[in-house]
Design a protein around this nucleic acid. Sequence first.
DNA 1: CGAGCGCTTGATTGAGTTCAAAAATCGTGG
DNA 2: CCACGATTTTTGAACTCAATCAAGCGCTCG
Lengths: 179, 179
Amino acid sequence: MENLIELFGISDDLVPQKFKKGHILQSQGDVNSNAYLVKNGLLRSYTIDQKGKEHVFMFAPEDWIISDIESQEFHHPAELYIECLEDSELIILNRKHLASVELNSQQYQQRLNKLSRRIAVLQRRMIGMMSSTAQERYEEFLVYYPNLVGRISQRMIASYLGITPEALSKIRGQIAKNS
Amino acid sequence: MENLIELFGISDDLVPQKFKKGHILQSQGDVNSNAYLVKNGLLRSYTIDQKGKEHVFMFAPEDWIISDIESQEFHHPAELYIECLEDSELIILNRKHLASVELNSQQYQQRLNKLSRRIAVLQRRMIGMMSSTAQERYEEFLVYYPNLVGRISQRMIASYLGITPEALSKIRGQIAKNS
DNA sequence: CGAGCGCTTGATTGAGTTCAAAAATCGTGG
DNA sequence: CCACGATTTTTGAACTCAATCAAGCGCTCG
């Protein structure tokens, strides 16, 4: 946890702030987007597509950092909403912190490492999306995020998996039957 | 192009090597994986799933860098094959180059920038995968990679889009009819 | 206590897959 | 440069997984 903060080369003025469940930290289209370090609680990022449907992009429980990278790094309008799924305490990292003064080599390495890890996760998810059925993806989700399952509504999990809540409910019924 | 090499802090011993179309540079399971900088030609990375089906993960034309990040960065067995789709000239960047001696701050920033960009691309692709039909994804592909379309077989494009070649053929037929 | 939200269940529909076979294109050796 | 075999692309019919539509149950929190 401590080293997550060191990652940004700053430790003053980074006081955790409290937000209520349901609070939307930033919206699609926002230009000055932040990154959020979760001290405790749970966030999600998501988009709303042309047809008005939500798609969860990622969840961020304790010790995770969440942001719209494209917006934050390239100053584009954000594609993602970021929302509190629980009452949460967050450290807000704005552009000033992120594009901060000279970092040392180790801090850079840590940042590179974090980004690489995220790419690895996305890579696995993309491949799963292309090669696995909804049921297989759900079972994989249970394995990878066992501690999140109880905290997140089925609706959100379905949205993360790229299916409808109805489809997930049927899959769960199916799994329950075979055991 | 030049600055792509500078990105790795080295300019000696990085001589382009030639490979024939069809050559497989690395396979699923390989542990000592490299990154490949394409001077000219065209590469793809792909996996083969449990059912024996190929899924194209990305294409890399001139000036792109391609690698299995998880393998390269975290020393895991590679999940991706990397293959030449055309006769190609490549600069091979092995771990020694990538985990190289002290980079300067600008070089680090460039690397962070490259990784962020790749995340942005993956993010867009994931969201498209969840919210768009096969036809919409194909049309978006035509817009984003107009210069690749003629160089890549329909089979590969279908695989990149996450559909079968038959489905893509029907989509193309449909589009041709309406114009 | 009631209204609304989340989850389930069932019937119907539809986008894309699978299987099969024909037509077009590519590449290689003669 | 042509011819032949192999691969790619197209087309069609049957099928499947997940979406949609609709209705009902159970909570919670207001």
